[in-house]
Write a protein that binds this DNA or RNA. Sequence first.
RNA 1: GACCCCUUGGUCAAGCGGUUAAGACACCGCCCUUUCACGGCGGUAACAGGAGUUCGAGUCUCCUAGGGGUCACCA
Length: 483
Amino acid sequence: MSGIRTRFAPSPTGYMHIGNLRSALYAFLFARKNGGKFVLRIEDTDRDREVAGAVAIIYDTLRAVGLYWDEGPDVGGAFGPYVQSERKALYSLHAGRLIKSGHAYFCFCTKEELDARRDACAARNEAFKYDKHCLRLSRHEIDARMAAGQPFVIRQNIPASGQTTFRDLLFGSITVDNATLDDNVLVKADGMPTYNFANVVDDHLMQISHVMRGMEYLSSTPKYNLLYEALGWEIPRYIHMPPIMKDTTHKLSKRTGDVSFQDFIAQGYLKEAVLNYIALLGWSPGDDREKFTLEELIEAFDIKGMSKSPAIFDGAKLHWLNAAYIRALPENAFTAYARPYYQQAGIAAMDETILAAILRQRVEVFSQIPGMVAFLRQMDENYDSALFTNKKSKTDITTSHTVLEAVLPALESLPKFDRQTLQDCLLGYAEKMGMKNGAVLWPVRIAVSGRMVTPGGAIEILALLGREESLRRLRLGLAKLTV
RNA sequence: GACCCCUUGGUCAAGCGGUUAAGACACCGCCCUUUCACGGCGGUAACAGGAGUUCGAGUCUCCUAGGGGUCACCA
């Protein structure tokens, strides 16, 4: 037992952002690599932002990519409950301790009053900081206001002077003046703790040894440490992680396009590829490896390989990685993923083995399939006969006409219409005529597809279309060349 | 604006005082070839700028610039 415990603590706000997934992944990898535990905690203290079904999305996504948690709302554990809204008593208990020791105080300032003061500051171009107005309230006054039912919050009482230093395993030692810190709200008027407070309490109570979270918390970490100290708790190790960017100046966000894990899956990305790609966005194994299974990631993971600067999401590279994963798929797995798209394209009845053979090397994202194979279902019969002319294959209108005319009856009388038979027939004809294979296959492919570029060659397309449709298209091509 | 952090090719990145400054994606060229793709080979392209420290700096220090983050009864 190494005692290492990490956690992933998402808010149930709707979908799984790719950046959050990466945070979960790193926390998971760090725990697994070091023989520690990975905890899942739901941070639902903001009831206004809560979205129904969001917790299920978190569970489903994590499970889909293999990020199983050792403790969590559904699996339990020794430090539950693992849902913050169910831990209110714990927060009140420790908030009370803070009040008693003077590290926190009741505040009755209303939102309106605060907004007014904030606006005033903005007008003077000054940074707003709560002025500890309510810290001066006497016990008497506090009791009276509470008795009168006046709503209140609990604020952290930050020392007015001095400095606070903390160590981050990635960023090193960071020191800030306490004077720059604000007396943040710890417990809201509705009795719910804020992130600032719930996090400290939960991370301590759940014995989290390494707090891994987004860099946006870097500047508020000193405040958390002040809380740990006030509560007499050991400060955990911190690992703040830089964000994933859309470009140099914008974070990857909903507005910039697809950012949720499910968006990528819906587009035809493989979950393994997405996970592999984001693992590499902000972390490097230190060597040249790029394809990793989850097990391999666990083995290779080391926070020393983590980057301190934000990484820009590169859709092209994800595309490439996804294509690499697709190419490595066994035929049956490829077909299982592709089948819905075959149906969508109306070619579900065609030979899946041939389809897999020609598509697997070409598809980068499954959603490209319908567009790639549409011509099999329905070709554009008004294609330009100029397509028959190709210098490299040494074809032109005349040679194409000759080839189609000769090949048509041969194919018509073929005993079988499978790839082997078709190949013997077509290549045999080329050999007999002393022609390049391409000189024969080019016009045939153009005639049966009507397209300059096709996935697969003439033989595969013929086999896929079957004798009747193939011959129909070949006759059409011949007619076009005869005109 | 104040405070904190970051800065190697277009992108992800290796490097951790001495290297011809890796590799991958993307891009370009060639080869293979039944078009495209795959695959193979090759190429273009980087240490933000300026001062130091040092025999020697992408690597250490400082400054400048640029970028990010925080400054909520959101997390």
